[in-house]
Design a protein around this nucleic acid. Structure first.
Lengths: 329, 329
DNA sequence: GATGAAAATGTAATCGATTACATTTCGGGT
DNA sequence: ACCCGAAATGTAATCGATTACATTTTCATC
């Protein structure tokens, strides 16, 4: 547990020289460098980031805000962020907010107290006012979800278009009675996905049926089951369901099976996100793939640039419809 | 972005007094306290943890080492750790090692550089030698996985007993040809689970059949599929499969379905861990529930006590067999 | 109002690094 | 041998808090 003073003393040089060897940007003679390195070896010295961070007024930590760790949707994004961050010597603090303002505040406080250099928010339920306020003084990027027009840079996909394509696929394979399992429209992406749904119907001359649109409070498996229960009770039962998350879709799948019906023969199902599990279900799920890893790396790069004081622009990434058994049997 | 000096000046007191108000343990007059609080308000002051951490030689961050974030097994444990940690004013840094020593080293370095106060390791592939060495100077707890007899406190379940009960359940509902889908026996828990399997067979007079034991490199879905493929090709096909992780079991499930066979009629399946998804499959999976949330809180409490210099003892928690459709239809 | 112990507050060292600026050393040219 | 600029190294301030110890204030008591 030696410090830089002791290393300097042992090497017979000043702390400045030790620091220079450590950081390697200022010049030191090969000979002194060796002396210092020997002392470091000998004393088993590891520079303390506490001292360095204070001096540099940085923590080299970035926060990732997610509503819950249980949604596999975030896995690849997080990996993307992590790898990019690590390559730039940042570590990531994963923050589960449970969509609760109290927990959100705990993590925002880390930012205010300089324990974190920036935030990547993926929580759609984040308090936009607080975020806007924080963005004036701190580096903040929104990833996947974004509040819309608040001047915080974001990286996301074109939800409207993705939704449009998913529904169009269902129409093209012959469906006309298509239910939409959406999340609460207080979220921008939910509104966008409904618009895509409507545009696809409209374009193919299918009248909009309000009874076919369902809203769920969260994007989980249970909510999917519940919504599907309601759909199955409709008099004029849809022949296809488009769910705005894979977990919802997997819930629907299970419920359809439980009712003794077949996917996709009786009801086709499309999900959204292409989480790992969408491939493990029976049948495998047709779904919209978001470029999650890329999204993560892009978000991380943007954040780091923001931290360095550069101005960064928002990014919209592409997506892809992955057609599997739940629509084509 | 005010600092404590400016607050002191503005309030007309010394920095010591401001610090006392901040920490609230030393006494200050109501009047000065108010003055200070007004100054804090006025200047929008937030104490910097960088300064505080340096002075206190702590980071108030704990590391969680997991092989991969994609295995839902860790969710509840992480939640448990997080909640306990937050309640004690610690934040958690989630570290995905991908079971690679290089990544492991990055995170261990954070510990050495005082960026973290302790580690909870859940990586079975962790380098035991390094861990042992680190444990001499730093607070380290092993959670769920443990290297065995290295003097690092751990919290886990009785794997042998859990495995025994799972297999016994299969025997009790009539199975005698039971395959074991195990992971590499370089891991202690894998050896223990095989022992439980053997004990159950032995106790019921069922001879051990080496052809029924399969080893997989990792505990994922694909490995489960692969192993199941091999099992299905056996001449004397087993009527039941016990997999040491739910992901393996889910892979098996999918493969059995793909072969046109029925679970549990043709082949019964038991998993291990009770991850969220074990309930979402069709049929729902019989599995061994580990008390994951509890495990997390216990591990976190142990770690914090270790950080505070106390000595802590290892803990073995209970488990529970959850019987669902994949064995009882 | 003087006294003194207790309570409140202040002073300054400290944690461990980085770095602007000052000083020393080096080496080439004459 | 001497001079001078460049290169290497050293000195000390700095980041922003906490806290041991010193000093001042308060107030009950006589």
């Amino acid at each position: 547990m030696a410090n830089i003073q002791q290393v300097a003393k042992h090497a017979g040089v000043s702390v400045a020289t030790v620091s220079r060897v450590l950081n390697g940007k200022d010049k030191v003679t090969a000979k002194t460098k060796q002396k210092v390195e020997e002392a470091i070896q000998y004393l088993n010295y590891e520079p303390s980031m506490l001292g360095r961070n204070l001096r540099n007024s940085e923590s080299r930590i970035v926060l990732i805000l997610i509503p819950t760790i249980s949604n596999p949707f975030y896995f690849e994004i997080i990996k993307g962020i992590e790898n990019m961050a690590l390559s730039q010597n940042y570590s990531i603090l994963l923050c589960e907010t449970d969509s609760k303002p109290e927990k959100e505040e705990i993590y925002f406080d880390l930012l205010r107290k300089k324990m974190a250099d920036g935030v990547i928010s993926m929580d759609p339920a984040v308090n936009v006012e607080t975020l806007k306020e924080l963005a004036e003084n701190y580096a903040i990027i929104q990833c996947s979800e974004y509040g819309g027009g608040i001047g915080i840079p974001y990286v996301t996909i074109d939800s409207e278009e993705a939704s449009y394509r998913a529904v169009k696929h269902l129409i093209q394979i012959g469906h006309r009675k298509i239910a939409l399992m959406n999340s609460d429209e207080k979220f921008l992406y939910a509104r966008e996905r409904r618009m895509g749904y409507e545009r696809a119907l409209d374009e193919h001359g299918i009248p909009l049926n309000g009874d076919y649109i369902f809203y769920t409070q969260e994007l989980g498996f249970e909510q999917g089951q519940l919504a599907m229960k309601k759909i199955l009770q409709l008099e004029d039962r849809p022949t296809a369901v488009f769910a705005v998350s894979d977990l919802l879709a997997i819930g629907a799948l299970k419920e359809i099976n439980a009712a003794g019906l077949n996917v996709p023969k009786d009801i086709a199902v499309v999900g959204f996100d292409k989480i790992d599990f969408s491939n493990m279900t029976n049948p495998a799920l047709t779904t919209v793939a978001q470029p999650m890893y890329k999204m993560g790396t892009v978000a991380a790069r943007m954040l780091i640039e923001k931290i360095q004081g550069k101005t960064v622009d928002s990014v919209v990434l592409g997506h892809e419809l992955v057609i599997r058994e739940s629509t084509t049997g």
